[in-house]
């Protein structure tokens, strides 16, 4: 528990990060806002992340999800918002923290990985190397949500 408290303090000390517990008295559920990185189809959009901390944290990774049907991305299940990222699964190490996790997911937006697709539609476009089509489809999805 002291680990989460410390992370909370560290995060609070920085004011440019949008990562906060859902309620102040419960550090087991967090939300984060990430902004679409520039020069990606996600630019100009904000995305909400739901983070829930398992009891075994930091020995087990936090569980992170996008809002359902909000994130068109090859490594994200569009329907559920589930994310496929190595550090959230087997590659997790206790030295990572929530901040690092959120930053990794932010990085995932600009570096999609076609080898572990959760969104097959986008995965196929990406495999084909059709970046224009990929980006357009992402934009279409994002536009539709507005």
């Amino acid at each position: 528990m002291s680990r989460l408290i410390k992370e909370y303090k560290t995060i609070n000390a920085q004011d440019d990060i949008l990562l906060f517990p859902e309620t102040a008295d419960n550090l087991n559920n967090w939300t984060a806002m990430i902004t679409g990185p520039p020069n990606t189809p996600y630019e100009g959009h904000d995305f909400k992340l739901y983070i829930s901390i398992p009891d075994a944290y930091p020995n087990s990774p936090p569980m992170v999800k996008f809002h359902r049907e909000a994130m068109p991305h090859v490594n994200v299940n569009y329907e559920t918002g589930e994310i496929c990222l190595d550090i959230l699964k087997g590659e997790w190490s206790p030295v990572y923290n929530l901040l690092y996790t959120v930053q990794s997911i932010e990085r995932l937006l600009s570096e999609p990985n076609a080898d572990s697709p959760l969104n097959l539609e986008l995965g196929i476009l990406m495999r084909e190397g059709d970046k224009t089509a990929y980006d357009s489809l992402v934009r279409y999805y994002l536009q539709r949500q507005k």
């Binding site: 002291s2 680990r3 408290i5 410390k6 206790p94 030295v95």
Partner: peptide, 11 residues
């Protein structure tokens, strides 16, 4: 170590 601060458990 005496009063060691572990960065994993933060204790």
């Amino acid at each position: 170590k005496q009063s060691f601060e572990c960065i994993i458990c933060c204790e």
